[in-house]
Simulated scan of single mutants.
Amino acid sequence: MLIDSHCHLDFPDLAAEADAVVARARAAGVGRMVTISTRVHRFAEVLAIAERFPDVFCSVGTHCHHAAEEEDVTTDDLVRLARHPKVVAIGEAGLDYHYDFSPRDVQEASFRRHIAAARITGLPLVIHAREADEDTARILEEEMGQGPFPALLHCFTGSAELARRTVALGHYVSFSGVLTFKKTEELRKIAAELPAERILIETDAPYLAPGRWRGKRNEPAYIVETARVLAEVRGLSPAAVADLTTENFFQLFKKVPRDLQVPELRVPA
């Protein structure tokens, strides 16, 4: 079984054909999907997708792009919404210095509120970090000093130093289709050297389609290509990578059940 630890099934181009997307994922061997919240004010849309499919779960949180729009969202709000049985993570939240759609101090304040929610709930914080390696590591280290919390750096494209500091805190690193791109040799080197027990995979669908699908809309079924490349760089079989990343997922996303009854999904031809 493979698991897509990070996708956006509520985004319009996937939500419009959600039944077919989920059916294709199941056919490809994807046993669980986590659809990720980017706006708490639109959380109901994310939750509706998760409630519709027994093998789809969700997070609750505010993406750093939208931090300035949702300064009213409190840690208590996140904790309250996270009580729903389908909510298995906090976020995504973090820092994005590439676009700077929200002021950096606002991004940091939101990031810390999400960390507090992860600490209180015990649910993993899904972290977005782009061109903000030093501040991301600093904040994580400072906050761990205030009390532990589980976390995952999603769609990792950062430095080996950020990966090292993240893993040293006991956190996880997730690789997306970017791992398969021709010019990401350094990223593949990081993926080859990280401790096996700290690695997950994801699609970040509908973005960043891997391998032969590059340039097209991404979807959870395509995670098989990222898993194949990860197997190559680590010298493992695809089956071993599937087992490894699935076990790591369940170790981190403890609220997701290991056993599920998934009824057949009938998709109109």
Rank of each mutant, 00 (worst) to 15 (best):
D4F: 05
H8I: 06
L9I: 01
D10P: 02
F11W: 02
F11P: 01
F11Y: 09
D13K: 00
A15Q: 14
E17K: 15
E17S: 14
A18N: 13
D19P: 15
V22H: 01
A23K: 15
A27F: 08
A28C: 14
G29Y: 05
M33Y: 01
V34Y: 05
S37F: 04
H41Q: 14
A44Y: 06
A50V: 00
F53L: 12
F53K: 10
D55A: 14
F57E: 13
C58I: 08
E69M: 09
E70C: 12
E71C: 02
V73E: 03
T74Q: 10
T75L: 09
T75S: 15
D76K: 07
V79N: 07
A89F: 03
G91L: 02
G91T: 07
A93C: 15
G94Q: 13
L95H: 05
L95I: 10
D96M: 06
D100W: 03
D100F: 07
D100C: 15
P103R: 03
P103Y: 01
D105Q: 14
D105V: 13
V106W: 12
V106H: 09
R112K: 14
H114L: 15
I115C: 11
A116H: 02
A117G: 14
A117I: 11
R119E: 10
R119F: 00
I120Y: 00
I120M: 13
L125E: 04
L125V: 12
A132K: 05
A132I: 06
D133W: 11
D135E: 15
L140G: 04
G145R: 03
Q146W: 01
G147P: 10
G147A: 03
P148L: 05
P150T: 06
L153Y: 02
L153G: 05
L153A: 07
H154S: 13
H154Y: 00
C155Q: 04
G158N: 06
S159A: 11
A160V: 05
L162W: 05
A163T: 12
R164L: 11
R165S: 07
V167P: 03
H171W: 13
Y172S: 06
L179Q: 08
F181S: 10
K183S: 12
E185V: 07
E186C: 14
K189Y: 06
K189N: 13
I190D: 03
I190E: 06
A192V: 13
E193F: 06
E193P: 12
E197Q: 08
I199A: 09
I201H: 02
T203I: 05
A205Q: 01
A205I: 00
A205S: 04
A209R: 01
P210H: 04
P210W: 12
G211V: 07
G211E: 06
W213K: 09
W213L: 14
R214W: 05
E219D: 03
P220M: 01
A221P: 01
Y222L: 09
I223H: 03
A227T: 04
V229R: 06
L230Y: 08
A231Q: 15
A231H: 11
A231I: 00
V233T: 14
R234P: 08
S237V: 09
V241S: 04
L244I: 12
T246Y: 03
Q251M: 12
L252V: 08
L252H: 15
F253M: 09
K254T: 12
V256D: 05
V256I: 13
L260K: 11
L260T: 07
V262P: 10
P263V: 10
E264C: 11
A269W: 10
